[in-house]
Amino acid sequence: MNRNRWILAALLVLLAIALLDRGGQDGWFSSLSGDSKGSEKEPSLSAMAAEGAPKPGTAAPAFSLPGLDGKTYEVGGKRDKVLLLNFWASWCDPCKEEAPELKALAEKYKDSLDIYAVNVTLYDKLDEAKAFVKEYGYTFPVLLDEKEEAYRMFNGIAFPTNVLIDEQGVIRDVIVGVIPPEELEAKIKNLI
């Protein structure tokens, strides 16, 4: 009987230490002690993406990537048209959701907008990316970011990530996740 009490006491002490310490993290104990850090909201995906990423109003990082069509595409510097960079993966359900809208925007604004669909191939399979492009009927360039280099330049953290770049090569907006189609179109129309 004494042995069971000692085991129970030891378990309660360990549980108390775990709850109070939490490995040195701010958490349950800090909120009890009135520490305001424990009550802060988690940062949004957009806020996390913004940390260390090129900001709207700054020049887009320069890079070149091969396309599915065998050509090499370059980003950075002045352009003839506004550019929408769309970072995606074939397994991404939100990417599937926005794919028809991207196709419609490409057709509607073909004279004033370029869309580069950048498949982050490091996180995807090339065959599945090709099947996605065929299924959704992409007619705009599909670039292959095989080493995640371009995606990292924009501090990508989620799919899809869309970056609007004006004709001067300046980033005008970074959109993490899917937004309503009319909102994306309004952002594009403001630039063209």
Rank of each mutant, 00 (worst) to 15 (best):
N2L: 13
N2I: 12
N4K: 14
N4H: 10
L12R: 10
L12M: 14
V13G: 12
A16K: 03
I17N: 02
I17T: 06
L20P: 01
L20D: 06
D21M: 05
D21E: 07
R22Q: 15
R22A: 14
G23K: 07
G24I: 06
S30I: 00
S31H: 09
L32I: 10
S33W: 02
S36Y: 12
S39Y: 08
S39R: 09
E40H: 10
P43L: 08
P43A: 02
S44P: 01
M48S: 02
A49N: 09
A49Q: 10
K55S: 14
P56M: 09
G57R: 04
G57D: 05
A59F: 00
A60W: 00
A60H: 01
A62R: 09
L65R: 00
P66D: 04
G67Y: 11
G67N: 12
K71L: 11
K71A: 15
T72Q: 14
T72P: 08
T72V: 15
Y73H: 09
Y73E: 05
G77C: 07
K81G: 05
L85Y: 14
N86K: 06
S90C: 05
W91R: 03
C92Q: 04
D93G: 11
D93N: 13
D93K: 15
C95A: 10
A99C: 07
E101Y: 13
E101W: 11
E101K: 11
E107N: 12
Y109D: 10
D111P: 10
A117D: 01
A117P: 00
N119G: 06
T121K: 12
Y123R: 03
D124I: 09
D127L: 05
K130T: 04
G137M: 06
Y138N: 02
Y138H: 05
T139Y: 02
T139E: 09
T139W: 04
F140P: 04
F140D: 03
V142A: 00
L144V: 02
D145L: 03
E149Q: 13
E149L: 04
A150K: 08
Y151T: 00
N162K: 12
L164Y: 01
G169P: 01
R172W: 11
V174R: 06
V174C: 01
I179G: 02
I179K: 05
E182K: 15
L184C: 06
E185R: 11
E185F: 07
A186P: 07
I188A: 09
